[in-house]
Amino acid sequence: MATHLITGAGSGIGAVVAQRLVDRGDELWLLARNAKRAAELRERFPTAQTLVGDLGDPAKLSWALGHQSPPVELDSLLHIAGMVELGPIGDTPVKVWNETLAINLVAPAELTRLLLPQLRMSRGHVVFVNSGAGLTAHAEWGSYAASKFGLRALADSLRAEEHAAGVRVTTVYPGRTATPMQQKVHQQEGKAYEAERWIAPESVATAVLTALDLPRDAEITDITVRPGG
């Protein structure tokens, strides 16, 4: 039985990944932004443990985890949480930049730093669920794409640094996926949302688990997932 810590397990891709891991009997630790959210996650995943830490305030994650009891052994850290706020760079205020970079980039970096001792001990795996916007930046996606380009760099540097310790690092780049975040994006774009046009979160979850379950003689570094024809 493996032990996993997941961010973003409340909906979308994260919820599907969490359910898949629960169904096969693995041990789950779920990060929630506050106590209310933690209670909701425990109700949805009764066998899971929860930790409270606000990804929007990365500077306090060390303090938060220091006052709780994170897992002693950790086989994988799955960064799936994220946020998006579209808009032209000329109209994007500092508040949006700071929130986007905090949740999508700085918090994953800090959470990884805090849990690296456990990951090194178990020769574990860090998975970053990035985005197609981490490979190509389009108009009005500036702040989000910048955070995801940064996340790609974080993953690549971490992989190079931790390879000798046996820690594997995978980045998954999904295209548009039928999640609540995608529904929000469509609202911001002023477009009708048709979930069936986009990737099912179950398909992205399969890509994540494929990377996790790969035998130890190999490492999947990057997976790009695109909507089918």
Results as ranks from 00 to 15, higher is better:
residue 144 Y to S: 03
residue 4 H to L: 07
residue 185 V to G: 01
residue 152 R to P: 00
residue 91 D to P: 00
residue 184 K to Y: 01
residue 99 E to D: 15
residue 194 E to D: 14
residue 37 R to E: 15
residue 155 A to E: 01
residue 50 T to Q: 07
residue 142 G to S: 15
residue 111 L to A: 09
residue 83 M to P: 00
residue 102 A to T: 05
residue 65 L to I: 10
residue 8 G to M: 11
residue 99 E to H: 11
residue 1 M to L: 01
residue 57 D to G: 00
residue 205 A to R: 06
residue 221 T to D: 12
residue 58 P to V: 00
residue 5 L to K: 11
residue 206 T to I: 03
residue 199 I to N: 13
residue 178 A to W: 03
residue 43 E to T: 13
residue 117 P to C: 10
residue 173 Y to K: 11
residue 16 V to I: 15
residue 68 Q to I: 10
residue 98 N to D: 15
residue 140 E to N: 13
residue 217 D to F: 13
residue 130 N to A: 04
residue 218 A to M: 12
residue 225 V to E: 11
residue 155 A to D: 00
residue 88 P to R: 14
residue 66 G to R: 10
residue 229 G to M: 12
residue 68 Q to H: 13
residue 146 A to H: 01
residue 174 P to M: 11
residue 79 H to T: 04
residue 130 N to P: 00
residue 68 Q to T: 12
residue 171 T to G: 12
residue 32 A to R: 08
residue 207 A to D: 12
residue 78 L to E: 10
residue 165 A to E: 13
residue 27 E to F: 00
residue 131 S to F: 03
residue 72 V to G: 09
residue 225 V to Y: 07
residue 189 E to Q: 14
residue 219 E to M: 12
residue 18 A to N: 05
residue 15 A to K: 14
residue 39 A to L: 04
residue 124 G to I: 04
residue 102 A to C: 06
residue 78 L to G: 10
residue 59 A to P: 00
residue 229 G to E: 15
residue 4 H to T: 08
residue 147 S to H: 05
residue 186 H to M: 06
residue 119 L to H: 08
residue 114 L to P: 05
residue 37 R to C: 04
residue 75 D to I: 02
residue 195 A to V: 04
residue 44 R to Q: 14
residue 213 D to F: 01
residue 91 D to N: 13
residue 202 E to H: 09
residue 221 T to F: 09
residue 122 S to L: 07
residue 111 L to W: 13
residue 163 H to W: 12
residue 9 A to F: 14
residue 137 A to I: 00
residue 88 P to K: 12
residue 174 P to I: 10
residue 223 I to E: 10
residue 136 T to Y: 03
residue 92 T to Q: 04
residue 24 R to E: 08
residue 130 N to E: 03
residue 183 Q to N: 03
residue 173 Y to V: 08
residue 143 S to D: 05
residue 168 R to W: 14
residue 6 I to E: 10
residue 92 T to N: 03
residue 160 A to G: 07
residue 129 V to S: 08
residue 207 A to P: 06
residue 22 V to M: 07
residue 163 H to Q: 14
residue 208 V to F: 03
